[in-house]
């Protein structure tokens, strides 16, 4: 195969993949809004994606917020701007690090699990069995996962933001010598509604991509254990890329002007 053929094949495969993913996403969204609704499965997924992700997301936010405060203090010293620690920490955490880090952690934890679970169901014919039992796999398997992730990720990011700011507060007041009330006042004064809005919008979009990638790759996996392994890897990698890309697009659109 010559080089041009290789490039052509690559782009045709890429376009076909985007087409399949778009159709899958459309079918999944339609399944969310059409009965029957599986509330028990939705609740299970909300617990799985949200509640059980709290420890890992909380720890990530706490340590990142604390490290960020220290870095800003040291960097700010170079031009006598040490006092900006509280305001920069809150803006950085709420606008960027909270949603992105929470999204990435949940993608690592949840996309892979979804792809592995659905992939195993596919290769062991459990998804075919659902169809023969007159149950739509999109409504039973995909819709609850997608909806749960879109609902739960903003809540998770809200918690991550608070814990991240708390991390900065602990380092700022206990190690860097900031006054508690001054630090808190600076945090509140510099935080705007638009910051929180962007954080929550990003979280919902990231949640959609996390569940979509996990479901898509798992649902279409084939070839036994190796296929399920490949689906799991692809789910995490593609979720990471989509989170980072959509974060850039949302940030440029909301704060670019």
């Amino acid at each position: 195969m010559n080089f041009l053929q290789y490039i052509g094949r690559f782009f045709i495969d890429l376009l076909a993949q985007i087409g399949r993913l778009s159709v899958f996403a459309k079918d999944a969204v339609v399944a969310i809004f059409s009965p029957p609704f599986y509330f028990r499965l939705l609740w299970q997924q909300m617990l799985h994606i949200g509640y059980f992700s709290l420890p890992v997301v909380g720890m990530t936010a706490l340590f990142t917020g604390a490290a960020l405060a220290q870095q800003i203090y040291v960097g700010g010293e170079r031009f006598n701007a040490e006092s900006t620690v509280a305001s920069v920490v809150v803006i950085a955490i709420v606008r960027e690090l909270g949603p992105v880090l929470a999204g990435l952690m949940v993608a690592g934890r949840v996309s892979s699990a979804m792809a592995a679970e659905l992939g195993t169901m596919r290769v062991t014919e459990q998804i075919d069995a659902l169809v023969t039992l007159n149950t739509d796999p999109f409504k039973y398997l995909i819709a609850p996962r997608l909806l749960a992730a879109v609902i739960v990720l903003p809540l998770l990011v809200l918690v991550a933001n608070i814990i991240g700011v708390l991390g900065g507060f602990i380092i700022g007041t206990q190690k860097l010598g900031f006054n508690v009330s001054v630090y808190l006042n600076n945090t509140v004064d510099f935080l705007e509604a638009a910051d929180v809005e962007s954080s929550l919008i990003k979280a919902a979009v990231f949640g959609f991509f996390v569940a979509l990638m996990g479901s898509y790759h798992g649902y279409h996996s084939s070839g036994g254990a190796e296929g399920v392994g490949k689906a799991t890897t692809n789910a995490v990698v593609s979720a990471f890329i989509l989170i980072l890309l959509s974060n850039l697009i949302i940030t440029v659109n909301m704060f670019g002007n």
Binding site: T124, Q126, V131, L133, N134
Partner: peptide
């Protein structure tokens, strides 16, 4: 589809459900 029943080669039972829930799946859902 309501006319069909199928026994799969590997049984294809749902791992996350108990045996009675597997058998009753079509009746409930």
């Amino acid at each position: 589809m309501s006319k069909f029943g199928m026994l799969f080669q590997g049984a294809a039972l749902f791992d996350s459900l108990s045996i009675w829930q597997n058998v009753a799946f079509g009746l409930i859902e």
